[in-house]
Write a protein that binds this DNA or RNA. Structure first.
Lengths: 368, 368
DNA sequence: TCCGATTTGTTCGTATGTATG
DNA sequence: GCATACATACGAACAAATCGG
């Protein structure tokens, strides 16, 4: 019934819609007047009006009393919903509050609401939510991709977003195939470089790295770690690096470290993926009777509460998550305003900053 | 123009809408036929159809070909939007992530999306957001009231929510005038009782309390503190309690405590509003050359990272925020399912649990 | 500033098609 | 099959807003 091509108003409606979608009628164009359409299509004006009413209701055109009927810019979207979707991986993550705070600050100031989606770092969930969001009436999206180091199988969903004129901004991570899309990232490579370089300058020579294998941050921090080593003229030994995954994050790092030490490997410094891992490692070293920083230096990442409040303050990397949130929101707003004919290709890296605390020792000086 | 009462179809539409909203026409009722309406209102059938088309579009009625036009159940809401609004006070708060995680878990499992609103504990913002949400197409709301200890001047907005068939659940706090509304709260009184009683049982006699004056939690924890003192037969001295506000939370507690000690007041235990205050107090005591728990015992509240990771583990109160979130979401879902003829009046208190760490000393034993 | 042609908005009458009970 | 009710369609008239002259 709803596809009944016999109905006159339906055929006219479809014909006009096709002309709009194909570009024959462009945004802002004035449509033929009702009487003119009635003449050319051999219909009564009433029937023409019915077809136009449906198109107006669906947001394709707008009738202006006394002037004419005009084709709208963003077909199919009646009005701005003033809703932005924010898709994140973890809510439990200790950096999430800062991030969402930054996003909320900018967006709420501009009258937008946030719809929150949490993937739990699952690709399947991400795809599911993107599909759901496509059915909803959102104006834009800020997305932290799940397992961003893996090839993305649902690029088509992002393409559908673009077809629906829904701009989006990547944060924290980015799929390889989409590196030109607007995004805001932390300079994790630089952060990894900073901590490693810090240890090297304090006279460390045998620096183990512990990194997360299944996200961009892990890979980037590792890249910085390698860069610092090579710059200092040290040989990069893959054996010296421990890789862990989301699933084994609670045991793998300390277990693998014990293993390394059992193999008789000399270690004087450990660059950890983040503060949580640093805490875990320090706990494990303590149990083995080693003290930080006297016997071994340890660095963290994130400048979280762990780093500030733990027994031995952790030397770590601060990265302004709140600012990242703000910048991502700002970038999205720009995209919304310019109704981009050619999508603006803005990408930004946010600088990391070294925070020196008590978990690293200057090995060039003797212990007192 | 949109309020033009001169237009016939507009008047008929408004008249029918009024009859539906007032209950004269009930859900499921069959409306008079188009011809009948045309006769009784002295209109052409076309005009009647226009009015009915608008009502159908707005979701009040549904026309069934060959049968008649019927009044729908949830007037004005076309379909379930599957969106729930979550209104919180602070995003920066260290308990927010747990809370939202619990809410998200239950709601996303049931196919709902969350729209997030953050009031910054401002009444004005809360009212503003409620108005905004009323225009949006949400199915329900979970709300943490702002400055819940003050009288609520915008109850009318909550009444409008009910008129629009949008159920809501209060969490964390509750306005005095709305104590029968569905809510889920932490038993803060019990928590305050537990820590105070713990100190008393360890032989403390001069227990100072530090509480937040501008939220329900502060008042309730204070109530528990008083209850424990009275139960133990101690005199409750108001001078022994320090009240602070959101604005002076960073200085007031430690400053007022110094003042008390300067006045020569004997103190052997301090019950703090939360872990953050406990950390602040412990820092301040340290500067004065006092050690915790040897010289003074201190308790916190929240079982946050501060309590777990600080130098001296803080004896504190755990309250499962994630569970609170889950229960609130569950309660809201119940409300949504039952489409309550009489709003179900469910209220629940979640039990507090004492976590003993190292910040309290047993004063009945001598120090070694 | 006003006029008048054009265009959309409202309202009526009438006829026919089609689904329901 | 028939009455009833909604759906589509045509024609006509007037009202109200727009816009160029």
């Amino acid at each position: 019934m709803s596809e009944d091509g016999k109905l006159k108003y339906y055929r006219l409606k479809e014909d006009l819609k096709e002309q709009i979608l194909s570009g024959k009628i462009k945004a802002g164009d004035k449509l033929p007047s009702e009487n003119e359409l009635a003449r050319t299509y051999c219909l009564s004006r009433h029937t023409v009006r019915k077809a136009l009413a449906i198109l107006a209701d669906a947001g394709y055109v707008e009738a202006v009393h006394g002037s004419g009927t005009y084709c709208l810019k963003r077909f199919g979207k009646k009005r701005e919903s003033k809703i932005i979707a924010v898709v994140t991986t973890y809510l439990s993550n200790y950096i999430f509050p800062k991030l969402i705070q930054g996003i909320d600050k900018v967006l709420s100031e501009n009258g937008y609401s946030i719809i929150l989606k949490n993937t739990g770092n699952s690709r399947k969930k991400e795809a599911e939510y993107l599909e759901d969001l496509l059915t909803k009436d959102i104006d834009g999206m800020i997305i932290e991709p799940s397992k961003s180091e893996l090839y993305c199988k649902h690029v088509y969903l992002y393409e559908r977003m673009e077809e629906n004129q829904i701009p989006y901004v990547f944060i924290q991570g980015l799929y390889e195939q989409m590196e030109e899309k607007p995004h805001i990232l932390m300079d994790d490579c630089q952060g990894g470089y900073l901590v490693t370089n810090h240890l090297i300058r304090l006279g460390h020579r045998h620096i183990v790295g512990i990194f997360k294998a299944d996200d961009r941050q892990g890979r980037e921090r590792h890249r910085g770690y390698v860069k610092a080593l090579q710059e200092a003229g040290f040989l990069y030994e893959p054996d010296q690096v421990i890789w862990f995954h989301t699933e084994d994050r609670r045991e793998k790092p300390s277990a693998a470290l014990k293993q390394l030490r059992k193999q008789g490997r000399e270690i004087d410094g450990i660059v950890c993926y983040n503060d949580e891992i640093a805490i875990q490692v320090m706990e494990s070293l303590k149990q083995e009777g080693l003290s930080v920083p006297e016997d071994l230096s340890v660095t963290g990442y994130d400048d979280s509460l762990y780093a500030r409040e733990s027994e031995v303050g952790i030397t770590t990397i601060a990265h302004p998550q709140e600012k990242l949130g703000e910048m991502a929101a700002q970038l999205l707003l720009e995209q919304l305003r310019h109704v981009p004919p050619e999508a603006s290709r803005v990408q930004r890296l946010i600088e990391a900053k070294l925070i020196v605390r008590d978990s690293c020792r200057d090995r060039k000086k003797q212990l007192v």
